Computed example of a mutant assay.
Amino acid sequence: MEHNEDHTVVPKKSSKQHNVLPLWGNENSMNLNPLILANIQSSSYFKVHLFKLKTYHEVVDEIYYQVKHLEPWERGSRKTSGQTGMCGGVRGVGAGGIVSTAFCLLYKLYTLRLTRKQVNGLLSHTDSPYIRALVQKLF
């Protein structure tokens, strides 16, 4: 225990507390577009398959084997004809489709509440650029 200037006792922070990453923004939505978040939470891949993955290592393996691109929607699953601006093309989210495996895994990583050590491990992972890229999207 430490004492501060007015001699009150200040508990020392454990190393575990230093390892916890603070969250910024909306804790429930991860600051994702509402349409993307709704599609993630309602997808059978997220609700059934990813629900079974409980550890950091299981999720990293899933990223390695399943992620093939980093767009929010699976290719060809959105109708964008007639849409312009932010609602058209790959950038827009105005018309939903099938949410991508990558974004489901991104949200799964978020729900795990990663530690500093885990984030550093993802950032320096050498097996797949998708592993490094997904963790960068978290922050």
Score class of each variant (00 low, 15 high):
residue 1 M to C: 12
residue 2 E to N: 15
residue 3 H to N: 08
residue 3 H to D: 05
residue 4 N to S: 06
residue 5 E to S: 11
residue 6 D to L: 01
residue 6 D to A: 06
residue 7 H to Y: 05
residue 7 H to M: 08
residue 7 H to V: 01
residue 8 T to S: 15
residue 9 V to W: 02
residue 9 V to K: 04
residue 10 V to R: 08
residue 10 V to F: 03
residue 11 P to F: 00
residue 13 K to F: 08
residue 14 S to H: 09
residue 15 S to A: 14
residue 15 S to F: 06
residue 16 K to I: 10
residue 18 H to G: 07
residue 18 H to E: 11
residue 21 L to R: 14
residue 21 L to V: 15
residue 23 L to C: 03
residue 23 L to I: 14
residue 24 W to N: 10
residue 28 N to R: 07
residue 31 N to Q: 04
residue 32 L to Y: 08
residue 32 L to N: 14
residue 35 L to R: 12
residue 39 N to P: 01
residue 40 I to K: 05
residue 40 I to T: 00
residue 42 S to V: 04
residue 43 S to M: 09
residue 45 Y to I: 11
residue 46 F to I: 03
residue 46 F to L: 14
residue 48 V to P: 01
residue 49 H to S: 13
residue 49 H to R: 09
residue 51 F to T: 03
residue 52 K to R: 10
residue 52 K to A: 11
residue 53 L to E: 08
residue 55 T to S: 09
residue 55 T to Q: 08
residue 57 H to G: 03
residue 58 E to C: 09
residue 59 V to E: 12
residue 59 V to S: 06
residue 59 V to P: 00
residue 59 V to D: 12
residue 61 D to M: 07
residue 62 E to D: 10
residue 63 I to Y: 14
residue 65 Y to T: 15
residue 65 Y to F: 13
residue 67 V to L: 03
residue 67 V to G: 01
residue 70 L to F: 11
residue 70 L to Q: 02
residue 71 E to T: 07
residue 71 E to M: 08
residue 72 P to Q: 00
residue 73 W to R: 02
residue 73 W to Y: 04
residue 73 W to T: 04
residue 75 R to C: 02
residue 75 R to D: 10
residue 75 R to T: 03
residue 76 G to C: 03
residue 76 G to K: 03
residue 76 G to W: 03
residue 77 S to L: 05
residue 81 S to G: 02
residue 81 S to F: 05
residue 81 S to M: 04
residue 82 G to V: 01
residue 83 Q to E: 10
residue 86 M to N: 15
residue 87 C to Y: 06
residue 87 C to D: 15
residue 87 C to T: 04
residue 88 G to Q: 03
residue 88 G to K: 03
residue 88 G to M: 01
residue 89 G to F: 15
residue 90 V to W: 04
residue 92 G to N: 08
residue 92 G to L: 02
residue 93 V to C: 07
residue 94 G to C: 14
residue 95 A to F: 04
residue 96 G to C: 01
residue 97 G to I: 12
residue 97 G to Y: 05
residue 97 G to L: 02
residue 100 S to R: 06
residue 101 T to V: 05
residue 101 T to W: 03
residue 102 A to W: 03
residue 103 F to C: 06
residue 104 C to T: 00
residue 104 C to W: 01
residue 106 L to W: 01
residue 107 Y to L: 05
residue 108 K to E: 10
residue 110 Y to W: 13
residue 112 L to F: 14
residue 114 L to E: 08
residue 115 T to N: 04
residue 118 Q to P: 01
residue 120 N to M: 12
residue 121 G to F: 08
residue 122 L to S: 15
residue 122 L to F: 10
residue 127 D to A: 11
residue 129 P to E: 14
residue 129 P to M: 14
residue 134 L to G: 13
residue 134 L to N: 07
residue 134 L to P: 01
residue 135 V to A: 13
residue 135 V to C: 11
residue 136 Q to Y: 06
residue 139 F to K: 12
